[in-house]
Every structure is written in C-alpha cells, then in structure tokens.
Amino acid sequence: MLEEEIYTVEEVARLLKVSKLTVYDLIKKDELEAYRVGRQMRIERTALEAYKQRGRGSNLKPVEVIENEVSATAGRIIISGQDPCMDLLARELEGKGAGQPLRSQSGSLDGLVSMYRGEADIVSTHLFDGDTKTYNIPYIRKLLVSQSFVVLHFIKREAGIYVQKGNPENISEWPDLAKPGITIANREPGAGARVLLDEQLRLNGIGKDSVAGYDSIYTSHLAVAGAVAAGRANAGVGISRVAGSANVDFVPMITEQYDIVLLKNQHTEKLIQHVKDLLRSVDLQEELASVGYDTTGMGEVLYEQ
C-alpha cells in the first residue's frame, strides 16, 4: 500500500488556488478534515479529495465564496514565523482566550507579504538592512505601504555562520564564504538568514555567483546546520541556538532583532493589546530568557503608523 500523501496548508492553498486564510477557514468550519502536528496543520490527500468530491453538486460553498467571507473576527489567529519563540507566543495567546492560534512557517519576507494580503494576523520578522545597519523597519514600511501597523520588539538572538567542528577552514568573516574551496548551504528566498547573507555579500562587494553552494537551498536553520555537520557544505548562515543540536561550531557575526508586526484596524485592537500584555509579562520573559533569548526591551513599541 502506498504511504498516504500529506499536505501543508500552504500546499493545499496552492492546489486550490486560494489563500492560506481560506484553507484555515475550511478547516475551522469542518469542511476540510485536518489534524495538528504541534501548532501546525496537516491535510491528507484523501481528505482533500473528499472535500473536492463533496463540493461537486453539494451544498458546500465554493472556496471563492468562502474567501470573500473570511474576516479578522472569525476567532482564529494566523501566526507567521519559524522560530520556536512564536510557538510559545501562540500557546500563551490560546491560554489567555485571545483566539485559536494557527501557525504558518513562512519566512520573514513571505510573512509580511501574507499580512499585506490579509492572510496573517501576527508576523515575526528579522530582516537586516545593510544601508541603515538596522533590522526590520525599512522592510516593513516598504511592504506594508498604505497600511496601519504596529511593530513590537520581541527578542534578540545571535546570528552567524555554522562551520564544521574545529572550524578547519578558519572562517571568521563574511568574505571567507567566497574563498576557493568553500561551499555553503543557503536558506530559501524570503528567509531572514538569506536576507542577512545577501546584504553582507552586497556590502562586501561579493557577487552571488562567487559563492559556491549559493543555490543549495535548505528550509530551516537546523537543515543548514545539518548539511554542514554532514560535510555537504563547509558553512551556512543561521542562529546560535541550533548549533549544539547539529554538532557544528558557530561563529557569531551579529545580534539580530526579532520583532512582531500586527496590522491596526477595528478588528485587531484587542489582539494588539493581548500581544502587548503577553510580551511585557515577567513569566514569558523569564521562560524565554531561560532558553537563551535576550528579552531586553521585550514588548516595546518600535514603530507604528
């Protein structure tokens, strides 16, 4: 018997040619069968086919009708971001009765694009801007143009370069990634680590074509570190917390700022206040600090318009 094919929400959205928010709404209304894996949802191929069959000639509303009915008051909260700290935030929001958290594992840029399209309620972002040497605000202002939003500081964490144990290639600075004989494992377009690498290459006058392995894509920090540990690459950009799990060494390069973005409108006032209260709570700050995050300034309003 063939193993059951399993889809993510993003994959089902692409197959049905609708937004992820519409897929979440189908799940919430029990029109599409799904199950949780941690904070994420998974849909089996048979469940998707069953939905499509029931929709042919039945009383189920077409997905395009449902898409027009989706609103921010439906009781679910789409939380976008890949760091485990977002799972803690989702847990706390659910515990406070703020709504039903549903997690999307989108990268920083994709998360902001989803928010602009109305497909995400809370987006985490860590995007380095080489021109200003700052994080996040330059990107958020450009991508959420004409939108009202608030940016709250969440945590800080160390970003840098994974290297093999003992750092045999003596990698210590960004230009070392372009040295002859060095191959990197890279992140997908839109990921904060990919943006950090691209900006550092630009600032150092290094063309992407000069970096071997630039097109070798891995979709998480752990996958990048694993590629380095297995010898498929000499180096890769990621965060310090993952290094110990993958048996690699870590060269710290920058303290990155990990912030949260929420749109401001009549439907999100309570959600914004819930998030502010949680980020400023001593209990959550202590829990995050205990696992290595820098919580200085957590909950501070960095920007709003």
Rank of each mutant, 00 (worst) to 15 (best):
I184C: 04
I184P: 00
R187F: 02
E188M: 14
E188K: 14
E188Q: 13
P189A: 04
G190C: 00
G190D: 00
A191Q: 07
G192C: 03
G192D: 06
G192L: 04
G192H: 01
A193C: 13
D198L: 04
Q200N: 13
R202Y: 09
R202K: 14
L203H: 02
L203C: 10
L203T: 10
I206K: 03
G207F: 07
G207L: 10
G207N: 12
D209A: 13
V211L: 02
A212T: 09
A212D: 09
D215T: 12
T219G: 09
T219M: 08
S220N: 01
H221E: 09
L222S: 13
A223I: 00
A225R: 06
A225P: 05
G226P: 01
G226V: 00
V228I: 03
V228P: 03
A229R: 06
G231P: 06
N234Q: 14
A235F: 03
A235G: 04
A235P: 05
V237G: 02
G238Y: 00
G238T: 01
I239L: 13
S240H: 15
S240C: 12
V242P: 06
V242A: 13
A243E: 08
G244Q: 11
G244M: 05
N247Q: 15
V248D: 09
D249N: 08
V251M: 07
P252F: 01
P252R: 02
E256S: 09
Q257E: 15
Q257N: 14
